[in-house]
C-alpha cells in the first residue's frame, strides 16, 4: 500500500495532467453537430496516431544488436505511421466531400 502511494506521489504531475486532459477532451467536443460525428471520429483516430512517437523512441533506445526489439519496433513504426497518415488523409477526404455538398444544392 505504501509503495502504491509512493508511486502516485512520484507521478503527481502526470496524474494532474491526465485529469485536466480528460476534462478538456470532454469540453472540446461537447457541441459537435451530428453531421460531423464521423469526421470527428476519424480526426481523433489520426490524433492518437501520436503513439508512433513512442515507437520511434523504442527504436532509438534499442541497442543495435537487439534484433528482436528492432524487428518488433520496426513493425510498430510501420503500423503507427499507417495510423497517422491514413487517419489524416481519410479525414481530409471526408471533409472535402462535406464542402462540396452545399454548392450543389
Amino acid at each position: 500500500m505504501e509503495s502504491i502511494l509512493e508511486y502516485i506521489g512520484n507521478n503527481m504531475e502526470m496524474i494532474y495532467f491526465l485529469v485536466l486532459a480528460i476534462l478538456l477532451g470532454v469540453e472540446v467536443i461537447s457541441n459537435v453537430p451530428a453531421i460531423l460525428h464521423t469526421p470527428l471520429m476519424s480526426g481523433a483516430n489520426a490524433i492518437h496516431g501520436v503513439v508512433v512517437v513512442g515507437a520511434i523512441i523504442v527504436m532509438l533506445q534499442a541497442s543495435p544488436d537487439n534484433y528482436l526489439a528492432l524487428s518488433v519496433g520496426f513493425l510498430a513504426v510501420v503500423v503507427g505511421m499507417l495510423n497517422v497518415i491514413g487517419g489524416f488523409v481519410v479525414t481530409d477526404r471526408m471533409l472535402e466531400m462535406f464542402k462540396k455538398k452545399p454548392k450543389k444544392s
Binding site: M14, L18, I22, L24, I47
Partner: peptide, 10 residues
C-alpha cells in the same frame, strides 16, 4: 499523453 487522453475522453 495529451494526444492519447484527449482522444480517449473525447
Amino acid at each position: 499523453l495529451t494526444g492519447g487522453i484527449l482522444v480517449g475522453s473525447a
